[in-house]
Design a protein around this nucleic acid. Sequence first.
RNA 1: GGCGGGUUGGCGGAGAGGUUACGCAGCGGAUUGCAAAUCCGUGAAGAUCGGUUCGAUUCCGAUACCCGCCUCCA
Length: 513
Amino acid sequence: MTSIRLHNTKTRKKELFVPLDPKNVRMYVCGPTVYDRAHIGNARPVIVFDVLYRLLREVYGPDHVTYVRNFTDVDDRINETAQNRKAAGAPGTLEQLIRERSDETIRWYHEDMDALGALRPNHEPRATDYIPQMVAMIEGLIATGHAYAKDGHVLFRVRSYKDYGKLSGRSVDDMIAGARVEVAPFKEDPMDFVLWKPSTDDLPGWDSPWGRGRPGWHIECSAMADELLMKGLPETQKSFDIHAGGIDLQFPHHENEIAQSCCAHPHGEFARVWMHNEMLQVEGKKMSKSLGNFFTVRDLLDGNWSGGWNVPGEVIRFVYLSTHYSKPMDWTDEKARQARERLIEWSHLSVDVTEGAVSEDVLFELQQDLNTSEALTEMGKIADAGDIPTLLATARLLGFDLQKVAKEDWANPYVYEMPDGTVRREGIDYQPTVGVIGWGPFPENLASAAMEVVRRWLELRRDKDYTSADQLKRNAEALGLSLRAYRTPSGLNGGQGHLSGRPNYEDLERLLG
RNA sequence: GGCGGGUUGGCGGAGAGGUUACGCAGCGGAUUGCAAAUCCGUGAAGAUCGGUUCGAUUCCGAUACCCGCCUCCA
């Protein structure tokens, strides 16, 4: 019998996971505010909870899991971009420009997260499509005394919910003592937070009983979870299984969601299990634009980061899974390189192998609060044992398609020469790789000249003309191109050139005579 | 100031109250025209102080340092 254990932030314990309804396991993850490209921190919950989603599908069946992840498309930064575009003469109304900005950001998000191997959730609601549900929920909260309207604002009466602060382990009084809460004339209590606020004419707004305005951030998630995960259930069953997100959302966002939803449905408990992933750092430091270590997922994919090389989505995913989600994770060049090597190795093993069954050992590790790090270690043992059918199936469970990786250019940077001298082509471009040290762009003609040198050298070696081969190697190295050959377990010969300097390509061509 | 997380061998990174983590790097050996790769083997740890225990890196407490949240940033 499979049993999943998950760390529940609400109880601060690792608990046996028992779904409310095994035929419909329901999870909600707080999604992005779609104002710009997702940065690499945004990708962590996506990957972590994608693994959870895959695990739940494996255990309960793919048709028995409902995964909701929202898009927050009510945001000042979206408005700002739209306003700037309008000012710059873009056609269309402000509302259209806002919608366009959200649309394009959502498209990017999908592109980037797809590249990371994340499955699309069953529902990806946009906040602006659920305004009536938010309004209805707010009206209900006012009717039961948990919220009040003042000057076009509606505020949640925090003191009316006795368990407020339970999730994050704070007391309301302590928070007031911390004194960093916003005091406003329309608030009864400094802790009260906004459910609805008025909109000015130049900002998007919706009609409501309190005038034209827009929803507060927290009510969005409550209303969408309500609609997509608990609709139609009797009041006594207004709960779902798992709610997840970054640890930075624990307070106030998740605390406020609980307050709203539990006051709207006093007999339910909203989410039973709360899961939070820890934050991501880059090279040991907090990611920030001023430190120059702020990268989007797209930056990594395209090579626009301090490492300077194109990091495949699978490699990014591997790096993320190598650290447990509950611990801070550091993105480093070194880790990414190791992950790449490992994936290349496994992918080469998987060529022409028929997929088997998922490893029980790996499944077990995932069931221990998503121990992805240990799962990858187990995968290594499976690979060492030569059980490739299992490796293939297990990698797929974790979101890696090894056979697809095996066909990627980045996994096949070498030229292979068969013992009979014929050339085996792998990947699209089947030239020897040039450039390792000081990765970065170099002129096309230099690359092709260097590759030709490697090719010539391999030919000389094949013909056992070691005198000429060594001569060529010495000359090439003098110019900054070092040559290496290797033999694979399957008996193939290959060669590789490493550019350690920036030789003139004409000098290299001269070597070829 | 309040709340929470972290600190493991050169680097990354897990589990378990007593038994080898694992990967990379290193070292030794085999092998390959040299070298690389590969294969085999191997040394190396648990921030500091104190407590519980027959025994703790693993449990408890304190200290130091790092990080996050308390400001609609995952």
